[in-house]
Design a binder for these strands. Structure first.
Length: 144
DNA sequence: GCCAACGTTGGC
DNA sequence: GCCAACGTTGGC
């Protein structure tokens, strides 16, 4: 299973809204960046992702699961962009903020630190585990 | 509100 | 194909 990080402005699409969609999930649409599109294409159903609030917030607030693979973005008329579907899995008990991440030397190579503008990012297994621990999820909670 | 980083556009 | 100009993103 691969790990990802999805960024959203809470004013645009918030974690509360994502959670409210429940198991039905929501299209992760509107991505218009090639690198981000390539990451969407690489996602498999069952992959996990951090839900990160950019702008107001700047913190990882939840975990989502890819529930449908990449398909043409319904909001794109040109047919060249992709979206996946994600559903909320759980919140992070103690949201992990950008300063938290930047102050952890083990996370200094995170894409979020190196290229904060990329809206769909890969996360390494180590980074995933470290952030889950920082967020207050024990290994039992993480594996379910 | 500022500005650095990044991506895209378009003239050459 | 290079690169300057421009627009956007997002942390601060």
């Amino acid at each position: 299973m691969a790990y990802w990080l999805l960024k959203s402005e809470p004013d645009d699409w918030s974690w509360d809204q994502q959670q409210a969609r429940g198991k039905a999930g929501e299209d992760w649409s509107g991505v218009r960046n090639y690198q981000a599109r390539n990451n969407l294409r690489a996602m498999k159903v069952g992959d996990r992702g951090f839900f990160y609030h950019s702008g107001a917030g700047k913190e990882i607030v939840g975990i989502v699961e890819v529930s449908a693979p990449a398909q043409p973005d319904p909001t794109d008329k040109t047919g060249q962009w992709l979206s996946v579907k994600v559903r909320a899995v759980r919140d992070i008990p103690s949201p992990v903020s950008m300063p938290d991440i930047k102050s952890n030397s083990r996370l200094k190579n995170m894409v979020l630190v190196r290229n904060s503008r990329l809206s769909v990012q890969p996360v390494s297994p180590d980074e995933w585990r470290i952030i889950c621990e920082m967020g207050g999820l024990d290994s039992t909670a993480r594996s379910s």
